[in-house]
Design a binder for these strands. Structure first.
Lengths: 182, 182
DNA sequence: CAAAACATGTAATGAGTTACATGATTTC
DNA sequence: GAAATCATGTAACTCATTACATGTTTTG
């Protein structure tokens, strides 16, 4: 059975200085976006549930320069829940659905030029993805040079970069292979 | 807005000799499993809808050696729908959620040895994934040596193998980096 | 005779996205 | 004064999984 990791993603982000629903969303969209995503429709209900379960606590903060906000922090139970989840064995490797590969699989029904166009499109998208990884990397290196977390954050980015480069290489080789038939 | 590709996956598989819900499931689980998955809860309702939309037709087949079955085939409208979808531009690159990376991101809260164990687990899983890719590859090469489809099928497998190798390399390097700190 | 393979379907549930709804404050 | 940023939340909807429900035929 698949456990719901969204809860733990929020628990984790609460440990790195993001205390409001709004800043949790920002953090995940910014620095975890290559392997996680989340919507407000998940964040606010989960935050509420976390408090009900005793894993987090809230304090309503009145701000003079900005709208009021609710500040969440982990309780000791919450910290324990996070650590327990971290030590749990992994479920199976995620099998992402990939539209490009689905289309390529059925590309006999298409002209070679349309297939090449598809691959060029994908290559362009991958290059953009790679560029965003690099910009996140610079951001992390600049903002958290001595942060104990940063080391792990850079590992996850390295993963994204390496698999993206492998996909890019494949793209180029596949384009070449198809061009030879034309 | 995200289009529902499941419909086209079924349309596509109907072109390669899988004509029943059961065999569609088998084909996707077997040969498309590295980039697509599907359940009977999607297949049978979709097949029904395809017929309603005039993209496929059914014939009830009585079999003497096996249970009765419904044989589906694409109509010319169905073939057109498939080709139109193939020529449509790609949506954005899929961002898979990755439990290993989520855990690694928050691994400051864990001992180095537990983190190493996590990475070793993942490495083992990746090796298994790679092995299944290889076995699918041999199956395709053996069963469809002259098939016009097979060329594209092997491209998609190559993608899976290359990105898996990149992930494996990353795993090893990251394990090494963490071991140096111990 | 039991298990595996063949075959089709529905209902309940879960996870997540998107649209909707509101409002303060700051910056241009 | 408009747009951007900060801030919180709900309701409807979509997509997909899982459990349920049933039945035949073959193979060991």
């Amino acid at each position: 059975m698949a456990t719901n990791h969204t809860k733990y993603a929020i628990l984790g982000v609460l440990t790195i200085g993001c205390r409001t629903g709004y800043s949790i969303k920002q953090m995940i969209d910014g620095s975890l976006n290559h392997f996680w995503k989340i919507s407000y429709g998940q964040i606010y209900p989960t935050l509420k549930k976390l408090v009900e379960e005793g894993l987090a606590s809230v304090k309503e903060q009145t701000q003079e320069d900005k709208p009021d906000k609710k500040e969440y922090s982990l309780t000791s139970d919450g910290e324990k829940a996070l650590r327990d989840w971290l030590a749990e064995p992994l479920e199976s490797v995620p099998k992402e659905k990939n539209e490009l590969l689905l289309k390529l699989f059925f590309s006999r029904h298409q002209s070679l030029s349309t297939t090449l166009h598809l691959l060029e499109q994908y290559k362009k998208q991958l290059k953009e993805v790679y560029a965003t990884y690099e910009s996140i990397e610079y951001m992390i290196r600049d903002n958290n040079p001595e942060d104990v977390d940063a080391k792990y954050w850079l590992f996850t980015l390295d993963y994204g970069k390496r698999t993206t480069v492998a996909a890019l290489d494949w793209c180029e080789d596949t384009i070449e292979a198809i061009q030879e038939e034309e």
